[in-house]
């Protein structure tokens, strides 16, 4: 059974003449790293947003297993079933790095005494130092912020990870580092990882590649 399925999903923004996502159907399996490539404005990020439950499709369904997410508690879906790495990081500017990573854990009921050590562990795994853990996001580099975002995404424990241009602001070294993390998640921990990117080298690391053009999705590899 696929982890996530898209069935004839179409999404049209308000006041937009044409759909950003047009009648897309595909399945995403656990234990696989997917890449969705395409030019800017092709609808990649919008497609990811549909998968993340950030909005519902204008038509069609996104299925979690066999269950349309339209019929689920979307807040809970976003909280427990999927995790998202945003293109612009979307970290709380006035919370420390550690507090940012603790947030999704506290959201699911973990006490601070349990969340903080786990947050620090995850941050260490992505290469954030103890001193950097005490900083505010604005005091970190783009790459550091991106790794914090990855740690936060890992904190919720959801097995479906969605990453929107996770390497867009990174140098080569950090790009490799991030992709390694994502690949390990898929291959070793059975995550379903879906990466949206315009970087072909990032796509090369994926197990399956889709191309998005004018809202339509086609499998490349």
């Amino acid at each position: 059974m696929a982890a996530l399925t898209l069935e004839n999903v179409t999404y049209t923004y308000r006041n937009s003449p044409r759909p950003a996502v047009a009648d897309v159907s595909c399945e995403f399996e656990a234990g696989t790293l997917y890449a969705v490539i395409g030019p800017s404005g092709s609808g990649k990020s919008t497609l990811l947003s549909m998968l993340a439950g950030l909005d519902l499709p204008t038509s069609g369904d996104v299925l979690l297993g066999t269950e349309p997410i339209r019929s689920l508690d979307l807040d809970r879906y976003r909280r427990e079933s999927v995790s998202m790495i945003f293109q612009a990081f979307q970290l709380f500017p006035l919370l420390t790095v550690t507090e940012n990573v603790c947030y999704p854990m506290e959201l699911v009921g973990k006490k601070p005494g349990e969340a903080v050590p786990r947050a620090k562990e995850l941050l260490s795994e992505v290469g954030i130092t103890e001193e950097e853990m005490r900083r505010f996001p604005a005091n970190l580099s783009g790459g550091q912020q991106q790794r914090v975002a990855i740690a936060r995404a890992l904190a919720s424990g959801a097995k479906i990870m969605l990453a929107d241009e996770p390497t867009g602001n990174l140098d080569v070294e950090n790009t490799v580092l991030v992709m390694e993390i994502l690949k390990r998640l898929a291959s070793e921990q059975g995550y379903c990882v879906i990466v949206v990117t315009h970087d072909s080298e990032v796509a090369d690391a994926a197990d399956v590649v889709f191309r998005m053009t004018d809202g339509r999705l086609t499998r490349v590899r």
């Binding site: 807040d75 976003r78 998202m84 500017p93 947030y103 999704p104 959201l107």
Partner: peptide, 14 residues
């Protein structure tokens, strides 16, 4: 609003 958007995106109930 920004913080609110992030909270909602991360699954915080309204």
């Amino acid at each position: 609003k920004y913080d609110y958007a992030i909270m909602r995106a991360l699954g915080t109930p309204v």
